[in-house]
Each structure stands twice: as structure tokens, then as C-alpha cells.
Write a protein that binds this DNA or RNA. Sequence first.
DNA 1: AATCCGTGGTG
DNA 2: TCACCAAGGAT
Length: 366
Amino acid sequence: MKQLENFSIEQFQADLINWFEAEQRDLPWRKDQDPYKVWVSEIMLQQTRVETVIPYFTNFVTSFPTIESLAHADEEKVLKAWEGLGYYSRVRNLHAAVKEVAEKYDGQVPNTVEGISSLKGVGPYTTGAILSIAYGVPEPAVDGNVMRVLSRILSIWDDIGKPKTRQLFEEIVRELISKENPSAFNQGLMELGALICIPGNPACLLCPVQGHCRAFAEGVQKELPVKSKKKAPTALSMSAVVLKNEKGQLVIHKRPSKGLLANLWEFPNHESMIEFSTQKEQLSDFLKNEFGIEAKLGEAFTTIQHVFSHLIWNITVFDGTLFGDVKETDTVKLVDQEEIKQYTFPVSHQKILKSFLEHEKAKGSE
DNA sequence: AATCCGTGGTG
DNA sequence: TCACCAAGGAT
């Protein structure tokens, strides 16, 4: 492979692994090599920072310490343990995959590429990560860190935003990886990317493999990796309503099982026209048509902006009072302020609830 | 291949 | 402030 010509592979492996063994962070998923816990950590770490994951991981493996316990756990509780982490299909896929492992593999996480990669939510990166870390199998685990680090070390100018580029790096890692310690090698690359070879201003003076780095030798480390820009998120105008009955209960709705924020609960809301003057009428029609709800809508007591990776919600939030009763179903419920804690809400609707409670409090103290 | 899918931290 | 981003996968 031409990218590795004149590259000292064995010395690089040794320098990287020695550094990792000496300097690696003390992280909760590094206390043992339980394949289940390695798996959970890798799913949580997808597109999510280590500091964010730590408390979620600790709580999750305490609540669901084994494959069996997660396989038999209630869906609502599993989702609740993920609340606020984002990318909620990860936990739905993890739950389904763990059930499959419990049934098909007698609770043993597979140790082959075919077995692991066929599990829901487990792609090329996670396959390599579990195999190398939990089982010591020399498979590449190419994530954003690995592409950034190797782009610099080998001075590779391919766009890491392109799917094809990941395959190139997998081929490179197949030749580069330590067969003796693939776990430390793969984790070392990622740890280096997280601590030293960071985006923007890499700490090259502290780098254990500086002597191997072609980008550093050429002084172009800040130019790498090449990464194409992503499309800007599109803004959406939304209306939402916190509806209360005479008992103080609130109306909540469960989102569909597919798509954005699947299976999470929310306050009734819909996309609305921008004209502020007609928002309340639109919302009133929506409530009647969608839920058969008759209500007296009050004031728009707050506006909330919530930014997703590909969307921006600008939500105008009304309060309101129910007329008569609401037909409760699997997807529409009336809950009091204690019961509501059992339901999983996206952060955007947590903001709505918080704002509503402050609004009520302020009204009450007038 | 390009887009969808969350959230919170950062310079 | 805001553009970028962080241990990706599914479609």
C-alpha cells in the first residue's frame, strides 16, 4: 500500500501503544473487558463526547448490568435511561440487538465480524471496536479520531466526509494494526485523537508519534484532515401547547416509532405558518382534528429554539385549559406532575415543561 | 452518495 | 456569536 511506503510500522505501533498504556484516561468502561459493557459504551460514544457519556454509562450498566437484564427490561425504562443523550434509535437498536443475543447466542456477544456486524445498530466502526477491545481480534475500528490522526500522520488529503474514505483508512489500519495488541492500538489511535491530535490546534509538541508524522514534518497539521462542509440546518416554525385540566393534569403525546425522536413523549405540537396572528387558530384546529381535543387556548408564554443536527425548531408555546375530557390511548395521556417523570421527553420538550412550571409559579404568586 | 438522526461543549 | 464538532449507523 503506497501510503505506508517507507513508514516504520513496528516502531509506530510500539510508540503508540506505550503511550496509551501510560497515559490512557481512567474511564468506567475500561475497568474490565466485558463484551456487553464494551458494546454499551461504544454505542453511547457514537457522536457523543466522553464527558457526556460517563454518567449515562454508569447509570445504564447499574440499571442493566447484563445482557439478560437488558433483554428483559421494560422499553420505557430503557428509553428513560437514554433521555437527553440523543440519537434515540441507538438505544432502540441496542435493546433489540441485546434481545437477539440473549435468544440466538445464549447471551454471549458474538466474536466474529459476521455475527457482530449483523446486530442492529452495529456498523463497521463498532464491529471493529468490540472485536478488538473485548476479544483482542485485530480488526480496524475507524472513527473520526482515527481518520484525523492518520490523515495527519500519513499526510492523506482525501475528504473524510466521504463514505469511501473510511474504507481507505480501514485498509490502511489492516496493515498498520498491532496483531499482538489490537485493543491498545485501536484505543491508542482514538485516545491520541481525543487528547493530543485534536481538531484545530493539535498539541504536536506533546505527541508520542510526532517523529512518525508527515503532516508535522511538512508543517501542514492544521490543514488536515480535509472535511467537506455539511448542509446548514433548515428552520421550522412550530406551535406547542401545554394543556391542563381541572385536576392539574397535563396532556402528553407519544411520537411515532420511526423518524425524529421516535417513541419519545411530547406536548401537542405541529408545524405552523409563520404568521404569528393565526398561530392560535391553527393550533386549535390541529388539536381538534388530531386528538379530538376541545380547549381554551391562553397566551403564548414563551418561545423556545432547539437546534438539531439538520433542523432548527422555533417553538411558540401556549398554555391552555381543557374543555371536558380527553380520550386516553397508548399515545395520548393525561398525567400529573409526579407521573410525568416516568415518561421520556426530548430536551426541547423538557425545556417547554420547565418554562411552563415557572410560568405557572409566576402566575400563582401574583 | 447524501441525508436523516440529538445534544452540549468550545474557540 | 455561531460554526464546528464528538468513539456512527440506517436508509
